[in-house]
């Protein structure tokens, strides 16, 4: 049971992933790009952030950079359609704890969430 912020420009994706998280008893916050995501992080201090990469205005990479620059200690999980290895390495080197490809399987998503939360402020 945790407060999870999900950042994704697709309302479809927010709905699908939201359903799974709520089903597991988590509290859900949502934002539709990196910029609104940053505001939500400051105002609501979630326990975990899940972000998409390909988004208008501020994409996931810029979001991860901004979080890192602010000294963020909240674990970040990336869920993206971009399966390229460079994207994965970029996210991981910017401090993301793991990366899942879209569409994530429900069990894979939940176990990644649990693992990310278990790690705390790594």
């Amino acid at each position: 049971m945790a407060r999870i912020l999900h950042v994704d420009d697709s309302s479809f994706s927010r709905l699908q992933i939201g359903k799974v998280l709520k089903g597991a008893g988590h509290e859900l916050l949502q934002a539709d790009n990196g910029r609104t995501g940053l505001l939500a992080v400051q105002e609501q201090t979630p326990d975990l952030i899940i972000t998409d990469i390909l988004m208008p205005e501020m994409d996931g990479i810029a979001f991860l950079e901004a979080l890192r620059d602010q000294g963020n200690r909240i674990p970040v999980l990336v869920v993206t359609a971009d399966v390229q290895h460079d994207t994965r390495s970029a996210c991981l080197s910017l401090g993301a704890v793991a990366l899942l490809n879209k569409p994530p399987r429900d069990d894979a998503l939940l176990s990644a969430v649990d693992r990310a939360l278990g790690r705390g402020g790594a």
């Binding site: 697709s10 479809f12 994706s13 359609a81 971009d82 399966v83 879209k102 569409p103």
Partner: peptide
């Protein structure tokens, strides 16, 4: 759009 996005990503 999201489904197509996933295809394009792949």
């Amino acid at each position: 759009r999201e489904v197509i996005n996933i295809g394009v990503g792949k």
